[in-house]
């Protein structure tokens, strides 16, 4: 039993002839402490799979188990509360709030979780220092470079100390050198026990993972474990 189990999951958009199949019976187990790369061409369903793993989306058919508990039937708000405790997202576009500075962006998940202000600030500072941005606490996203923004995003993903970090092409908008640095942070987090799932179309990045899941046309083609 993994930390996340996806059991024969289908995701179908639309109905009848117009129906599009994003996922066609995907089953996948991710163990605690795994570093998994989900790789596939665009439109293969890899993002949909990540959204389902990250409790952002629900399957049309099939089950998603989080630590053995079926989460595919939870309401939107129940999933939101579950999500804030267990999953941290890192996106390709960084997706920081432009009206908030680095510190406030990192505080955001804790704010929604009801963590008191002082505690939030303390933890956000620690996290930003950890990703090497201790000197950029009060900078706004538009005052930060791409790599810096992504590091803020990683700090934000770690805010509520989730067990799983999901990265959707986290290095896609960065140059090779910066991308490598970001990847290094993911690896370090993995060493500290975080479960990492990265979605990418870049085989070189996938090579860094311990486990590579190849997906095409909504089906898993194969799993390579190193």
């Amino acid at each position: 039993m993994g930390i996340i189990s996806v059991r024969d999951v289908w995701k179908i958009y639309g109905e009848g002839d117009a129906a599009t199949y994003a996922l066609r019976g995907v089953s996948l187990d991710i163990e605690q402490g795994d570093f998994v790369a989900i790789i596939g061409p665009s439109g293969s369903g890899k993002s949909t799979l990540m959204h389902i793993i990250g409790l952002l989306d629900t399957p049309t058919k099939g089950k998603v188990l989080l630590k053995g508990k079926d989460v595919s039937t939870l309401s939107d708000d129940e999933r939101a509360i579950m999500r804030r405790k267990t999953v941290g997202f890192v996106f390709q576009q960084y997706n920081l709030s432009p009206s908030l500075n680095a510190l406030e962006n990192v505080e955001l998940p804790m704010l929604f979780a009801g963590v008191p202000k002082r505690e939030r600030e303390k933890r956000a500072k620690e996290l930003l220092e950890m990703v090497g941005l201790g000197h950029r606490l009060y900078h706004y996203p538009n005052q930060l470079s791409g790599g810096q923004q992504q590091r803020v995003a990683i700090a934000r993903a770690l805010a509520n100390d989730p067990e799983i970090i999901l990265g959707d092409e986290p290095t896609g908008n960065l140059d090779t050198k910066t991308g490598e640095k970001i990847l290094k942070i993911f690896k370090d987090l993995n060493k500290r026990g975080k479960t990492i799932v990265i979605v990418t179309h870049d085989p070189e990045i996938a090579e860094e993972a311990e486990k590579i899941v190849k997906i095409r046309d909504g089906k898993i083609e194969g799993v390579i474990e190193k």
Partner: peptide, 16 residues
């Protein structure tokens, strides 16, 4: 819209 999506992704409920 996208910012709202992010807020939801980091655990904001509908009411929040």
């Amino acid at each position: 819209t996208r910012e709202i999506g992010v807020m939801k992704a980091v655990g904001a409920t509908k009411w929040q």
